[in-house]
Design a protein around this nucleic acid. Structure first.
Lengths: 229, 229
DNA sequence: TAAGGAGCAATTGTATGCAATGTCACACAT
DNA sequence: ATGTGTGACATTGCATACAATTGCTCCTTA
């Protein structure tokens, strides 16, 4: 494998996909805005093909809508779906936490360790430390992204591609809903993460499930109280 | 709009996408099988581009896995995720049924009727009739597809693009899991559909939610008893 | 004036050619 | 015998060129 000196530059398709999604979440691209492949291609200095693929991927993620031969537009923020999305997320993350705890127990019982599992577990540890540091420095604006990465990390520990893909989809929407906000419940919510990981590490299936479910439920009521009283 | 004589032939991309997905669900393409764009393009008599887009879409749906520059393979059947997928589906469909009932109530209270809503409601009526006819004729093999169409129809009635997209994703996996099976619980499950629609039509939010949740829960226990005793 | 249809411009869908990258076999040193 | 480096090959990623479809403008007409 050729070792890149500093860092692998992401592929053009991935780059524009992330960029467009960022612009949509941040509000730089408002709902209903028409998007053409050619204009974006020129903007980023690449051809229409990668832009096209990025737009289709974003359509699958629910950020843009497109009709054949008619073009793409920025989708509407799913604000009306907030409560239902949280309800689904509650069931979903309870499942990922339960499975993650089961996987953790398996790591210590079987002989051969799963390197991917340990790598992911280590990433989560770093994420938790980064979050604590951010809180210490009053940089609460870093928490939303770290929060998403934590929850996706737990999904990764669950070793279920299906559940991880579902959480990716929902997490994108939730992040979109929180766009204007800067986590007022940030501190308390973050502290619950270590308690969840403790249950997972201990292989305590039902406790992990309960704590994660309660954690998401708190987020849900917090959001609904603030934005839909 | 130019009116096509008999029926609009689907676009090549959509055609191969449906074809490949069908082959994967049916088992004609088994897990781990390597898929190359060129071979499929030649097989269907089209270029690599539509095949490529179809494969990426199927990757988003969870049926294929691909790594950059390395190609695509058929994903593994998510049999280990069955119970968790059903759990998420339970929460998800309870939400769609609740919202569908709310939308139904709105149709009668406000002045202007939503034509899309009524069209979807009519489609569901036809689906239910088709299912009854299939049962009458002992053609139980038609039920799985009609079942998916019914549940997606209810999601459509919910008027939530987010929830509909999530259900599409989960329904695909569930259909995959049921692949070898030919609905032994088919008859009884089908009869519950009219009861669910009655609650939705009446605008009875909580009853619709409960009946749909119970319906999915029955499917879940039925599946787990049969395949994972 | 309003309704309807033909023509046109803009945009997406598809085909082909080239560049970039991962994979695998094989030689070779330890 | 086993691990390691190297090179050719197969396959995907991107660029460019062409075909197909949509939505709109504007003209016609009752």
């Amino acid at each position: 494998m050729p070792h890149s000196p500093v860092r692998d530059a992401p592929a053009p398709k991935q780059r524009v996909q992330d960029e467009i999604r960022r612009d949509i979440i941040s509000g730089a691209l408002s709902a209903g805005t028409r998007i053409t492949e050619a204009s974006l291609g020129e903007k980023y200095g690449i051809s229409r093909v990668p832009v096209r693929e990025a737009l289709h991927a974003l359509e699958a993620e629910g950020f843009v809508e497109s009709k054949p031969y008619a073009g793409s537009t920025v989708a509407a923020i799913p604000v009306d779906d907030a409560d239902d999305l949280f309800a689904v997320r509650e069931a979903l993350e309870a499942a990922t936490a339960r499975r993650a705890a089961k996987q953790a127990a398996a790591q210590f019982s079987v002989g051969v360790p799963d390197s991917h599992w340990w790598k992911t577990r280590k990433d989560i540890a770093e994420i938790l430390d980064s979050g604590d540091a951010a809180i210490e420095a009053d940089s609460l604006n870093l928490l939303p992204e770290l929060n998403v990465r934590f929850h996706l990390g737990v999904a990764e520990l669950s070793a279920s591609a299906s559940l991880t893909a579902l959480l990716r989809q929902i997490a994108g929407k939730i992040e979109w809903l929180y766009a204007a906000d800067v986590g007022s419940r940030g501190r308390q919510a973050w502290n619950e993460h270590r308690s969840i990981m403790a249950a997972i590490d201990a292989g305590d299936v039902s406790t992990a499930e309960q704590r994660m479910g309660g954690h998401v439920h708190q987020s849900r009521t917090g959001y609904m109280d603030r934005f839909a009283p």
